Amino acid sequence: MAQENYVEGCSMQIPPLLEADEFCFWKTRFETYIKSKDIDLCQVIQNDDFVFMMADPKIKMDIETPYEKLTDNEKKQLGKNNEAKVTFYNAPPRKEHERDFMCKTAKEVWHTLIITHQHNSQVKDCKIDLLTQQYEKFLISDEETIDSGFTRFNAIVTSLKSLDQD
């Protein structure tokens, strides 16, 4: 399905679409989406791919367990590795996909998105300072409705909260 035809909020099967200028908002929604979809996907994204090892008596080292020797549950968990990557491939626009496609694991994709869009701690601190100033100087003008003022205020608070979580 083309992203142009996708209507936000119409499906629990498609992750929220990434908007680079609203990354903090997207990040919170994406984390909630992943946790609600499958807690194993969250595990893969945060802690890396599931890998199953076994002892090889010939070389006296652990090696990756051949697929044929995996239990059904282990095979299902291995499937979560690719499911997590596919979930990421459905969220960002094409230019993001080209960068993320080079990552081997979902954890690498997640880390790349965070580094790309949240930047380093100095940029994050500057964003927090700017949002704090907006919060402290917040006013609803006479021409503005309460709803639109509340929406602006809520965007400031939500952005501050998401930046403070890291």
Rank of each mutant, 00 (worst) to 15 (best):
A2I: 08
A2W: 13
E4F: 13
Y6H: 07
C10R: 15
S11V: 02
S11M: 00
Q13M: 06
I14P: 00
P15Q: 02
L17K: 03
L17N: 01
F25K: 10
F25P: 04
W26I: 05
F30N: 06
T32G: 15
K35V: 04
K37F: 10
K37S: 05
C42W: 10
Q43A: 14
I45N: 02
I45G: 00
M53H: 00
I59T: 13
I59Y: 04
M61A: 09
M61T: 03
D62W: 03
D62R: 00
I63Q: 01
E64P: 00
P66V: 08
Y67F: 15
Y67P: 05
E68T: 02
E68W: 03
T71E: 03
K80I: 12
N82V: 11
K85M: 12
K85W: 09
V86D: 14
T87H: 04
T87A: 13
Y89Q: 12
A91E: 10
A91D: 09
P92N: 01
P93V: 09
E96T: 08
E98V: 00
E98W: 00
F101D: 13
M102W: 01
K104N: 12
E108V: 12
E108W: 06
V109M: 11
W110D: 05
I115N: 04
H117Y: 15
Q118E: 14
Q118R: 08
H119C: 13
N120E: 12
D125A: 15
K127T: 15
I128H: 07
D129S: 07
D129Y: 05
L130R: 08
Q133W: 07
Q134L: 15
L139C: 13
I140W: 09
I140G: 09
S141V: 02
D142Y: 10
D147C: 15
T151Q: 11
R152W: 11
F153G: 04
I156D: 09
I156K: 04
V157M: 09
V157N: 00
V157W: 03
S159D: 14
S159K: 07
L163M: 11
L163G: 07
Q165Y: 02
D166Q: 14
D166N: 14
D166H: 14
